[in-house]
């Protein structure tokens, strides 16, 4: 969208205005800032995991099921592995798979949505029916189906989550493009004889992206939850020792009666990162949509 902005000074000004405005409103939105803080925390944990982890997440470093202590902040699991280190590395996996899945979903959904909304007609009908098919399957079951079909593994996990979100992105983009087709400046561009492709890429797409960005942020929260869900069902990374949050919860669940803190720490990590993306997504929606300004 920024390329388009550079080419067309009109849009460039409008777009800088929109984003500058949005940034200003976002700074005043306290919940969104809290969300941003959660995300930074989550991202730092993921990126710095190798640096700040006190222990090797795969190695036995204590006795089995130690209670939280200064050495093991979150205690140890059945195999004596440091849970704090495993939660940090778990953030890495969630961030990597989650962001990868959402980006992939954006690409797949974006292309399909742009084709459907930009060109309309029969191709639009076919794409929309296809998204209907995917949307009729509960997303976790769709992901289960894909992972069982492709085999377990991080890339498969990423792909499975991406496929279950792509239809939503496609519909969203198509919807905004259809609405924009009637917009005055698009009609104006058409009357001066601009080509279809040019109108789509230069005039319509930049304006249709905002709802997509908002949705992508919100979906990141769902992605983190769904990754953990698949892990909890035993469909996470191929190696069961991998410190993936959902996979870790399967073990934690077995000691729920004696060591409930394990569930709390892992669950807390999931909830905090999901809350972060939800808060930021809501904040973005409010600040990017001037109509919502009260």
């Amino acid at each position: 969208m920024f390329r388009a902005a550079l080419v067309d000074p009109q849009i460039a000004r409008a777009s800088r205005g929109l984003w500058g405005d949005a940034a200003r409103r976002l700074r005043r939105n306290r919940p969104a800032l809290v969300g941003l803080f959660c995300i930074v925390l989550f991202a730092l944990a993921a990126i710095l995991a190798p640096v700040i982890s006190p222990f090797d997440p795969y190695a036995m470093n204590g006795s089995s099921l130690d209670a939280p202590s200064l050495t093991h902040l979150f205690g140890t699991d059945l195999l004596g592995r440091d849970i704090f280190s495993r939660v940090l590395y778990g953030a890495q996996i969630s961030l990597f798979v989650g962001v990868g899945a959402v980006v992939l979903a954006l690409v797949i959904g974006g292309v399909l949505g742009a084709i459907a909304g930009g060109f309309g007609g029969r191709i639009d009908g076919v794409i929309m029916r296809a998204t209907d098919v995917f949307l009729s399957i509960p997303s976790i079951l769709l992901a289960i189906g894909i992972v069982t079909a492709l085999g377990r593994g991080m890339v498969q996990l990423m792909f499975a989550i991406a496929v279950s979100y792509a239809p939503t992105f496609a519909r969203l983009l198509r919807g905004s493009l259809l609405a924009l087709r009637e917009a005055d400046y698009v009609v104006a561009a058409r009357t001066i004889g601009a080509s279809r492709m040019r109108i789509l890429v230069r005039h319509m797409l930049p304006n249709a992206l905002t709802p997509l960005i908002v949705q992508a942020t919100l979906v990141l929260a769902t992605a983190i939850i769904d990754i953990a869900g698949l892990g909890f069902l035993g469909l996470g990374p191929a190696d069961p020792r991998t410190p993936e949050w959902g996979t870790m919860l399967v073990d934690a669940r077995r000691f729920m009666q004696t060591a409930p803190h394990i569930v709390v720490f892992i669950g807390g990590a999931i909830v905090i990162s999901a809350i972060g993306f939800n808060l930021l997504g809501d904040g973005l929606r409010e600040s990017l949509d001037p109509k919502l300004k009260r």
Binding site: G246, V264, I266, G267, A274
Partner: peptide, 12 residues
């Protein structure tokens, strides 16, 4: 409610 996974809430 939208940020807590079903199974985490269930376990809790």
């Amino acid at each position: 409610g939208v940020s807590i996974p079903v199974f985490v809430l269930g376990l809790a």
